Amino acid sequence: MAMSANVISSDRVEGSAVYNTAGDKLGTIDDLMIDKLSGQVRYAVLEFGGFLGMGTDRYPIPWGMLNYDTSQGGYVVPLDKAKLEGAPRYADSSVPEYDDPYTMRINNYYGL
């Protein structure tokens, strides 16, 4: 069975670079958060900060904000590092429950 060019394995998304519109690398996608009922990807969790993966935080970014750029081989978001630094985040060891208050906090931060 042929695969559609419009789908991608989560294994290929995780580890992909994320850039801002100026071309600066912000980090990489660590995880995808998928809505259990609709099956739609709700958030890409960006790994940002730290050194060699140590001390990095995870930043959930609404999936609709990411655009794949074939020329950069990664995703582009309309965010700069300063906006990202103030965003909702968590340590890898303390993943929050993505309940309604938490998702509202993320969406409000990004103006959705």
Rank of each mutant, 00 (worst) to 15 (best):
N107D: 15
L84S: 12
W63Y: 12
V18W: 08
A44R: 10
T103P: 01
L79N: 07
D69G: 04
N20W: 07
Y98P: 06
N6Y: 15
L112S: 13
A5S: 11
L84C: 12
R89V: 00
Y19P: 10
V13P: 13
G50F: 01
S94C: 01
L84E: 12
G15P: 07
T103G: 02
Y109I: 07
G64T: 04
Y59V: 13
D99Y: 01
T103N: 08
Y19C: 09
D92G: 10
R105D: 13
Y90F: 15
M1G: 15
R105Y: 09
Y75M: 14
M104G: 08
M104I: 10
W63R: 15
L66N: 02
K36W: 02
Y98R: 10
D31C: 06
A22R: 05
D24L: 14
A44G: 14
G27S: 00
G15M: 05
D11K: 08
Y110S: 09
Q40M: 11
P60A: 08
G86P: 00
Y59F: 14
L52W: 11
N67T: 15
T103E: 09
V18R: 09
Y98T: 10
Y102C: 00
M65Y: 13
V76A: 02
E85D: 14
L26T: 05
D30W: 01
G23F: 10
V18E: 06
Q72S: 08
D80E: 09
R58N: 03
Y98Q: 12
G64Q: 08
R58F: 01
R58W: 01
I8N: 00
Y102V: 00
G39K: 03
N6D: 13
Y43K: 11
T28F: 04
L112G: 13
D35T: 06
L66I: 08
L32P: 04
Y98G: 08
Y19F: 15
R42T: 08
M65G: 06
G23V: 13
S10H: 07
I8W: 00
D35G: 14
I29M: 09
I106T: 12
I29K: 05
G53R: 07
L26M: 08
T103D: 08
T21W: 01
L52D: 11
V95N: 15
E85F: 03
